[in-house]
Design a binder for these strands. Structure first.
Length: 837
RNA sequence: GCGGGUGUGGCGGAAUUGGCAGACGCGCUAGACUUAGGAUCUAGUGCCUUCGGGCGUGGGGGUUCAAGUCCCUCCACCCGCACCA
């Protein structure tokens, strides 16, 4: 055979025609040795697992349950990138190990398939988003299967399947019935180019996240979910979760609980009062002015005639600024006096009311009492506009800067002399007694805007009647299916394309004959991903979302692995829905994800994020054909700790392949027979390293320390090469340990070792603690903390004996010449340190 | 600015309770086998060195018989939030 095969480097390849052709046809520039022919082996076992449904989960078995979950993938048109297999391999290793340890493992996958890209594609090309999505799913599915993940494919779910979104709609109805879904007129991010409203998180730097189109503010009637009703529980229940601390902190900040007081101020010459929220009610005597947000409804009413022009100019100026500009350019404080005065409830002093955009309408009540002496923002503002600064807490220098620390109160009548905490509670008592205010907890978290003006999403099951009332679609009419539409274009009015589908949108009540119109908004993409992990447990249930008995068996999820990009939104929304479902008795746990882990990112070779524009994207398909899925899995786990972001390295990938080749050659000869190194003898030279390896790999995998577990397996293989023979039970034990990482190759070796059944349910190896200790141990001899000699002694040598042995050692004596021994520290089985001078 | 995190060879990274820094892999050097090698095998590989040894975990200081690990301080980088009253 005379092909030119790039990087061809094993003469024996030429004799294997089948191998040549595969490699030749794929044209990969991989480094293939004939010893381990991955293409054939991987296909063979993927077919075997599929045909035998090897990884089918028995919902109600007697085994202990283990639920391993991957984050719900969005099947994009680009297919898988090398970042996907990192998290998926980690969960797959756990799933495979747990199965071998005798657990009943739930390890499912599915598709979060609604979303803007499919709709954009449909608009751009006139094709159906459904077909496009279906094709993308097929690509993802093929790629995932080629990586050898042990999913139970009978549990595959798809958010765009009416049998699935029937229950998404059902949950929405329940939220609606429990007053947690409501309609409100809110200023939303209207993107004219996309013809849709975007959530805050979809707007980046004033442009749409997808497409980078400009975004403007526009008031619109929207569906909202009252997540704020759960703010406190979402916060406190974080405590018991085994999640990364940084992530919990992000959620805490997002929820942003702050404790303080609401204080009511009257306005001079008006009957109306306004309230402010403050975390420092103790500084009320130091409040010298008040500020309202530009959107505050009272501004028009209270502005005096001579300030009218100035205020209107200011409001206009602010309106034309985007949110970004308002916050970003906020280095310099701006604002205008309204001409009106508030009355400080505690001392009756007049406080000018200003308008300024450093106060946000969306937080608290949209108005503040300004205490410039003890708040940095107020201080800065007061300096700019020369407003009075009155010290009420001693300890700082208010000539220089605001003092926000603790201290003794001054100029504060009944608070004088008190510290911060005492003063706060005393002031709250006073406010409550005099009906001027009350204790109050405020959250930064806002209600969830739960509507998108799009076609490709779950229809919201609500009908608006001509009499102005609205009702939910009856349960027996669910799912309310998304109608097939030949043309999907934004209506242009801000409504979704569904508004143009007369047949679908118009309804008549069969009994009363009243006319109505269906809700044309659809749900945001987050909806389907809020509960998918529940459906996996009972995916074909026609009567309910899932059998409560099955949910009880499997929840909470034992381990959930995915990227940190979902740290806040997805995880908070899913927790919210889960708590709601708990309240209405659907699920029996308060939290869905007991343990969560964020995998790091895989960067391009230049240590930059992989992106098409940089041309540094690595395609898993290429690696699977050149090096094999097992190599890719092994490499991604060996690169570094799972949570680190590490750059891709082709050399490192080659190294992983080399290790698998070394393992293969340890067991299998070129003629495919077993090597004669594997014997039935009970050799002892590998005892210690074998048992160490079993122990370390088991513990490391359990703790997601795959890189160190793999390195221990490399140590074992190196020792095996040095040994004369390998006892068969060690040889088998090692293949089992490696099988979660490199399942195809290990199945093949397992079979060649004479086993008929799949390795997937072979018992996980156990280790013998007694084999880990040796009779002799090396003790380090130090003089003044520096290692000068080493000594081999029997384990458990007494302290005194060890000290004598150490001091009689020549190499130690040499360092003690002319010195007096002050102290000898002996740590048995570890070291002796002689202190001398 | 605030909150969280990370700094260890040429590179990715290992190091129980403070107890031999650099496991394992990559890369590199030399050798062996070879028509050939980006295969395989063997040996070596933190830095400096007058070959005695000295110095080394971002910088400086401290605690200790002993510090990558504990404390103080400074610096750099990454992530999140960004006027949240």
């Amino acid at each position: 055979m005379a092909f030119f095969i790039p990087n061809f480097r094993n003469i024996r390849l030429e004799t294997s025609i089948a191998g040549d052709w595969t490699i030749q046809k794929l044209g990969r520039k991989g480094r293939i040795t004939m010893s381990f022919e991955h293409l054939g082996i991987e296909k063979k076992w993927q077919k075997y697992w599929d045909e035998n449904k090897t990884f089918k989960t028995n919902t109600f078995s007697n085994k202990e349950k283990f639920y391993v979950l991957d984050m719900f993938p969005y099947p994009s048109g680009q297919g898988l990138h090398v970042g996907h297999p990192e998290g998926y391999t980690a969960t797959d290793i756990l799933a495979r190990m747990k199965r071998m340890q005798g657990y009943e493992v739930m390890h499912p996958i599915g598709w979060d398939a609604f979303g803007l890209p499919a709709e954009q594609y449909a608009i751009d090309t006139g094709n159906s988003p459904k077909e496009f999505t279906e094709a993308n799913i097929q690509t993802f599915k093929r790629q995932i299967k080629e990586l050898g993940f042990s999913y139970d494919w009978d549990r595959e779910v798809n958010t765009t399947d009416p049998d699935y979104y029937k229950w998404t709609q059902w949950i929405f109805k329940k939220l609606y019935e429990n007053d947690l879904a409501y309609m409100d007129e809110v200023a939303v991010n209207w993107c004219p180019a996309l013809g849709t409203v975007l959530a805050n998180e979809e707007v980046i730097d004033g442009k749409s996240e997808r497409g980078g189109h400009p975004v403007v503010r526009k008031p619109m009637k929207q569906w909202m979910l009252k997540i704020t009703a759960y703010a406190d529980r979402l916060l406190t229940d974080l405590e018991d979760l085994d999640w990364p601390e940084s992530l919990k902190e992000m959620q805490r900040n997002w929820i942003g609980r702050s404790e303080g007081a609401e204080v009511t101020f009257s306005i001079e010459g008006h009957d109306e009062t306004f309230t402010v929220f403050t975390t420092r009610p103790d500084t009320l005597f130091g409040a010298t002015y008040a500020v309202m947000a530009p959107e505050h409804p009272f501004i028009k009413m209270i502005t005096t005639a001579d300030q009218k022009e100035a205020v209107e100019n200011y409001l206009h100026e602010v309106q034309t600024k985007s949110d970004l500009e308002r916050t970003d350019l906020a280095k310099d404080k701006t604002g205008v006096f309204t001409g009106a005065y508030a009355v400080n409830p505690v001392n009756g002093e007049k406080m000018p009311i200003w308008v300024a955009d450093y106060v946000l309408m969306s937080y608290g009540s949209g108005a503040i009492m300004a205490v410039p002496a003890h708040d940095e923002r107020d201080y800065e503002f007061a300096k700019v506009f020369e407003l009075p600064i009155k010290e009420v807490v001693a300890g700082g220098n208010i000539e220089e800067e605001a003092y926000t620390g603790d201290g003794s109160h001054v100029n504060s009548e009944f608070l004088d002399g008190l510290g911060k905490d005492e003063a706060i509670s005393k002031m709250i008592d006073w406010l409550e007694k005099n009906e001027k205010g009350t204790k109050k907890i405020t959250y930064r978290l806002r209600d969830w805007l739960f509507a998108r003006q799009r076609y490709w999403g779950e229809p919201i099951p609500i009908i608006h009647w001509e009499d102005g009332s609205m009702t939910a679609v009856p349960d027996e009419e669910l799912p309310l299916e998304l109608p097939e539409m030949t043309e999907i274009k934004p209506s242009g009015t801000g409504e979704s394309p569904l508004a143009t589908n007369e047949e679908w949108v118009n309804v008549v009540d069969p009994e009363m004959g009243m006319k109505g119109r269906r809700e044309t908004n659809t749900m945001p993409q987050w909806a389907g991903s809020c509960w998918y992990f529940l459906r996996y447990v009972d995916p074909h249930n026609k009567e309910q979302l899932a059998d409560p008995k099955a949910l009880e068996e499997w929840l909470p999820i034992d381990i959930y692995i995915g990227g940190a990009e979902h740290a806040v939104l997805h995880l908070l929304y899913a927790r919210f829905w889960h708590k709601f479902l708990y309240d209405i008795g659907v699920v029996s746990t308060k939290e869905p994800f007991q343990k969560l882990f964020n995998q790091g990112m895989i960067l391009g070779e230049g240590n930059e994020k992989m992106s098409k524009s940089k041309g540094n994207v690595v395609n898993p398909d290429d690696i699977i054909s050149s090096h094999g899925a097992d190599t890719l899995r092994l490499y991604e786990m060996f690169m570094g700790p799972l949570d680190a972001s590490v750059a891709w390295s082709t050399n490192g990938l080659d190294g992983s392949r080399r290790f698998l080749d070394r393992v293969w050659r340890l067991y299998i000869n070129d003629d495919n027979s077993l090597t004669d190194k594997i014997t039935d003898e009970a050799a002892t030279e590998l005892d210690k390293v074998y048992h160490e390896t079993v122990k370390k790999v088991t513990e490391d995998f359990e703790n997601l320390h795959f890189n160190t577990g793999i390195s221990q397996m490399m140590v074992f293989v190196n020792e095996c090469y040095k040994a004369d023979s390998i006892p068969k039970n060690y040889a088998e034990g090692f293949v089992k340990l490696l099988s979660p990482v490199a399942p195809h190759m290990c199945e093949e070796i397992w079979q060649k070792l004479g086993n008929e059944k799949s390795i997937s349910y072979a018992g996980w190896p156990a280790y013998d603690e007694s084999k880990l200790v040796e009779d002799e141990v090396e003790v380090v001899l130090q003089v003044m903390g520096k290692v000068r000699a080493k000594l081999s002694v029997p384990v458990g040598t007494a302290k005194d004996d060890l000290e004598k042995l150490a001091l009689s050692e020549d190499s130690v004596q040499k360092w003690l010449e002319g010195k007096t021994i002050r102290k000898v520290i002996v740590v048995p089985d570890k070291l002796v340190n002689v202190v001398a001078n």
